[in-house]
Nucleic acid binder design. Structure first.
Lengths: 242, 242
DNA sequence: GCAGCATATATGCATTTGGAAGATAAGCAA
DNA sequence: TTGCTTATCTTCCAAATGCATATATGCTGC
């Protein structure tokens, strides 16, 4: 940062946007909340909710505003993901975007989906483990949607981040309602990781983690022994990571 | 992204910069390469090498340029860290910075340190584990330096990221010369993590990881049994992460 | 009300993984 | 050559995990 802002204003500088990859769990699969663009560029394509950062708002504030204005959502879990700044990523000009990801239980989207052009699209992750790469979003018929800008890469980076994080950070809870069973949580992990998980060790590990608070209640209306309902306990006594 | 760029140009938009937290290992401790600011704001304070992003260069290109222009360095390991965009973080106006971290063996800095106002400052991390928070940079006398902008937080985020990553990603090698002993690598991990590590399990884990290629050579000029020298083998056959 | 069903939960055991300690090896110095 | 120091190897033990089995429980159909 060698020059005064007055110097810099003589030259054009990049525009700055935020985009939000909002993920949820629906029918045991990861879904993203996408909107349909009706203006060029990429008219007709699906895109992440996003918007330009105002001169007087922080990045998290911009994200909160975008989620409110475009999705009618508030109070959702949000974390910064990565900043994408390739020169050619927006045909309109130089736009650098700070991508965030948001996680919400699918029930919280009922209101959002009623509002306008939003659709919940199942994600198709064509790579294993945490390898990374773009991800496809499927329409109701299972056909891949055209995604605007580099949003396929942003979605891919989101899944990659979640896969690397879910084993040691309590992010799975953000995709579940306040009360859930261990099987619910297991299915979240399986959907994120894209592979089956050992049920017993998962149970033991989670019960020992101190992250679960028993509610004393049971899952109702199931034609078999009902599972215990748990609640996420924040500030689980962490045991380091080594 | 709802508006045309022509619309947006009517309004002022944030400036965009990159800052690089360049870390190395010196005397078994993490050090950062800092430069002394001679212009306001924060004149006299220490700061990360950084600069504004040009309209026609990608973010990685801007980082490479900054490292070349300000530090005389090229070919170093660089990864994106986090984007800092608080409204008040730069008193000159709205500047959002995409922070990167770079890792280099200390020997590679000989040239850089000769060039101008660069100093290698030992880092003092006042928090355990991966808790996070700002980090102090110490001068040659061990006194904390005044750090410009939010660069104390950027350095803290770098250490936090490294601590979370070094156990499962091959980043420790970037801080070592091409050939090194297992004890060298262990000391890198200890310096990053800020806590002692079990020597035997470290040896077993690393030898089994496939990341080390034996060179057949031994450390010379030591008054005891010399350790074997290894080389970092890229593309170690990863075994997933579960 | 009762047998039976499907899943939840608990228990036991083999395998694997990581920590700790001792034994041995290999250079150099006196 | 002896002794010192650190590297490397071997062994043992505790903890975590995968797997198989046994038991528990609420519901459904009769």
């Amino acid at each position: 940062m060698e020059a005064d802002e007055t110097d810099l204003d003589r030259h054009p500088h990049p525009h700055l946007a935020v985009d939000v990859a909002l993920l949820t769990l629906h029918e045991r699969a990861l879904h993203a909340l996408l909107l349909r663009r009706d203006a060029a560029p990429f008219a007709g394509a699906a895109s992440l909710p996003g918007g330009f950062v105002h001169i007087d708002e922080s990045l998290p504030d911009a994200v909160v505003r975008v989620l409110r204005e475009k999705c009618g959502l508030h109070g959702v879990f949000v974390e910064q993901l990565f900043t994408f700044g390739d020169v050619g990523r927006d045909p309109r000009g130089r736009v650098v975007t700070v991508a965030y990801y948001a996680l919400v239980p699918v029930a919280a989207l009922a209101a959002a989906r009623a509002t306008g052009e939003l659709t919940l699209c199942r994600l198709d992750v064509p790579w294993p483990q945490t390898q990374g790469g773009p991800v496809r979003a499927l329409d109701a018929n299972g056909k891949p949607l055209r995604l605007a800008f580099d949003h396929d890469v942003i979605l891919g980076t989101t899944v990659q981040r979640l896969r690397g994080k879910i084993d040691y950070a309590p992010v799975g809870f953000e995709l579940l309602p306040p009360q859930f069973t261990l099987l619910d949580l297991l299915e979240v992990h399986q959907a994120v990781l894209g592979c089956p998980i050992n049920k017993d060790s998962f149970r033991r590990r989670l019960l020992a983690s101190g992250l679960l608070a028993p509610t004393g209640r049971l899952r109702a209306n199931v034609a078999h022994r009902p599972a215990a309902l748990f609640r996420f306990r924040r500030k689980g006594r962490g045991k380091g990571h080594a």
